[in-house]
Amino acid sequence: MTDLARASFEPVKFAAPGRRRAWLSVGAVIVFGHVLLAIVAPWLPLQPVAKQNSGAILQGPSAAHWLGTDNLGRDVLARTLFGGRPSIGLAVASVVLAAVLGFAIGMVASLAGGWVDEVLMRVNDVLLALPSLLVLLLVASFIGRDSGVLIATLALMYAPPIARLVRTASLNVLTRDFIVAARLRGASRRELVISEVLPNIRGVVLTEVAMQFTWILLAFSSLSFLGLGANPPTPEWGLMIAEGRGYMTIAPLPVVAPIVMLASLVLAVNSTVDRSSSDGTP
């Protein structure tokens, strides 16, 4: 899944003009809500996320537990509301690192040109060819599931598409007439990057970064699902799904609640990106 997304292309333009505002508001509001929730969760009047109740295992909704309890008798509502914090944090950290790395590589390649460009892009191709989930599985299994390690790996796996994008976009800009003119005037390359190239490619890169954010969320949840992601008893959506999956037909909520949260966040980011990227098209 994540490889699919990583290797496929620019976000797809989407939604008819008249409906754009609706998508913007709904999508953006959901994303905002998720981020807000992740920040304020500790101050909400919820049951402690780790508290277990030996008399209430896999129970349905009740006054005490609005979304029922999981296989260790813990409150599903509290765990679900807290469950975005690790994945969102990890995804943001990895994607920022990936963006910085990818941006640097892409800019250097496009500005330097020649053999530097060739070497950087070939290395880039090689990294792109690595099956990301397999690499993640290997790293998490052999080196450990420490979040620093995972973030570094994810950043390395997700920097190449950004590098490629930045290089193409910046080459596009650099060959335009006004840039050529500026260079003839004697403007330094660094000035050019800051004054001309950056503003011109910001939109494309931001879109890519936002899409990657969702892929990393999904990749991390797949990793947790295969037992190599978040550490118990951390409430984390992917881990909650994995823990609850065996009891899905008995008590669906411990699985359904995190799925709804994960899917709504990914969907909201995707639709917002779709909308904003279609703004940029002529």
Binding site: S221, F225, I241, R245, V255, I259, A263, L267
Partner: peptide, 13 residues
């Protein structure tokens, strides 16, 4: 969009 968004273990289950 929805199908792309759902992790495969969800669809599978």
């Amino acid at each position: 969009l929805v199908l792309m968004t759902l992790p495969e273990f969800v669809t599978a289950s």
